[in-house]
Design a protein around this nucleic acid. Structure first.
Lengths: 351, 351
DNA sequence: CCGCAGCATGTTATCGTTAACAGGCCGTCG
DNA sequence: CGACGGCCTGTTAACGATAACATGCTGCGG
């Protein structure tokens, strides 16, 4: 494996001249450039990225640490990150924590050891210590998707409270008065915020949220299924469900189907998070988050910070959500007419 | 960010002693160990992986370059690779080429520059030059899934010829005499081999493969759909289809459904590649490849080679495929009894 | 008492690159 | 003519770790 030095010898110049030609930095004569390029071609020289990174103290690498790489919401964020980072010469490492604080810390340690330039973090918990660890080693971070108590850090997220308000508002407008809520862990800000937004809409409509079923669980299909079971076993009979994310919705739909409930005839459902083509997409009424934008903006924020001469003040960006009305929500108790076959109707196998 | 040197100073020893304590190499007294560990804890020291890798000339990193990261066959291989590599202290970089030779070469160049220890490659083509480039820079490679003309390299793959033979044999045993074949590009060895195995079975059964429809396309859903269209437009009327991989099968199923063909009543289908739970899985008769094993063995082969004192001879491992009979294949023209609802019946939304 | 093996530690050079600084040459301007 | 600024190149010293070798101590056998 040839080195800068080999190239320099062959071209009859110093290593610095070779380095300057390769990086296009400093002054080089057209003549040197030609000789160096010829030598590079002849040797099939490839720069050693490790040495470069060690010396320059920059790896041109960002990391995206997220809680569930199987969730289209996060893969969409990942695409946004990558699309913003690549053109600026940054590589991206993707890390999956499965909502585990320990995994998150393990990854953060690895990232520090690899000297990534910055970390984009979807925190598994408010108190993992990851941010402190990063700060202690001088790595900048941007927090994605979730709020943290400490505001001393860049953050990009969607307006969960506002989105949930839209969802509840939509169901109220349709005439629903008993609206159950199924969300993730109470300790995760998105859950809390989505419940807040829901509460605000209910209060505005003159309904006491205390009379409603609000269940906290996990952001998983299994948990959605289980919560739906509890919902249906209870006394009250909600005419609509607000599902806190797409996976909870899958579980809920499965549970409702098994219980013989038709959507939206027997029960309406509105979901936080849209889904890409090929999933259950054309059916569900959703609150769409600008996932791609969240990823893109977070990466841009990070890169801007890395390029800044002096330390920047922490910034927070909150993006609005959008209600997309489809066929899973309708006025309550529409027992007479059946506008659609009313089952899930998944037309295509995913590909 | 503290360094070995900082730790050494604080502990009152030399950097080498610290290095030895951290790596557990050479002799160290319990006393030094204690002092060093205390200093490490106090400083929150984390080793600089870049410097370590540069000096030791090993990155403890493998790369898996594959042609379609969305295909469960390859993600299963990836799991096998990771599970074999992790316990031995190797990290794995995953690279997706989308069957493009240019992307493949780009990745190979990046991997050389990053000085990965070895590359596991699913070649996009027989003649990309990737292997030559790797060899020129002294990086060992293992070729996965596909045959290459040059046999001078480690290789792990499934027995496509034998698997295809099983598939054809199965359909012949059911009584089919007109069996169409839809596969990927003729230039990819797996396509060629699957057609060979099919041919052998047909000849054995006294049928001239020349009378059959054998279509080459891409290993994609779109191509499967398109080829199925051509199939149905032709004169001959196959009673069975042998699909060269899972995505081709998806396209074919879609095409058959649109043409009003029921599976397996009107037409049987056998597919190369099994699918994980949650897909169309419990329905399709498949030739299952030991994907996980392919990945695991390839990684083990590579790690063995990296640890060997002297150069090893190139080795090739070919693993057998398995026929798993399910509901998509049946005797031809069973118009009378309908044992199943006979449509695809996808029960669950994927999660 | 000497030599040698086993333990423990330190010194020096190096991995391959770039940052920082130091010229040297040429032309131009005061 | 000397100073100065734009070009071009080279030298030296890192970046943070480990390989290789050197050294010094202890205890044991001959």
């Amino acid at each position: 494996m040839s080195t800068l030095n080999d190239v320099a010898k062959l071209a009859g110049v110093s290593t610095m001249t070779v380095s300057r030609v390769i990086n296009g930095s400093g002054y080089t004569s057209p003549e040197s450039r030609a000789r160096v390029n010829r030598a590079i071609a002849e040797l099939g020289y490839m720069p050693n990225v490790l040495a470069r990174q060690l010396r320059s103290r920059r790896t041109k690498t960002l990391a995206l640490v997220m809680t569930d790489i199987a969730n289209p919401f996060f893969t969409t964020i990942a695409r946004g990150v990558e699309d913003a980072a690549r053109p600026k010469g940054y590589a991206v490492m993707f890390c999956n924590t499965d909502e585990s604080v320990d995994e998150e810390l393990d990854y953060v340690r690895v990232l520090i050891q690899r000297r990534v330039d910055g970390v984009l973090l979807v925190p598994a918990s408010d108190s993992s210590g990851s941010l402190e660890l990063l700060k202690a080693h001088g790595l900048p971070a941007v927090v994605l998707d979730r709020r943290l108590r400490s505001g001393e850090v860049d953050a990009v997220r969607a307006d969960s409270e506002g989105g949930a308000y839209l969802a509840a508002r939509h169901l109220l407008d349709l005439g629903h008065r008993e609206i159950a809520v199924l969300v993730g862990p109470e300790s995760v800000s998105t859950s809390a915020d989505r419940v807040s937004g829901y509460r605000r809409a209910m209060l505005e409509a003159g309904i006491d949220p205390g009379t409603q079923q609000i269940l906290f669980g996990q952001y998983t299909e299994a948990s959605g299924y289980e919560m739906t079971g509890r919902l249906l076993a209870a006394q009250s009979r909600p005419t609509a469900i607000f599902a806190g994310n797409n996976f909870i919705a899958f579980g809920a739909i499965q549970g409702l189907r098994e219980a013989g409930k038709e959507i939206p005839d027997d029960i309406s459902i509105v979901v936080f998070d849209d889904l890409p083509q090929g999933w259950v997409m054309p059916f569900l009424t959703v609150i769409a988050q600008p996932a791609y934008e969240i990823g893109r903006l977070a990466a841009e924020m990070m890169i801007e910070r890395l390029g800044a001469d002096q330390p920047l003040e922490p910034r927070t960006i909150v993006l609005p959500c959008e209600l997309i009305t489809r066929r899973s929500s309708a006025p309550p108790r529409l027992r007479s007419a059946k506008p659609t076959p009313a089952t899930l109707n998944p037309t295509e196998s995913p590909a």
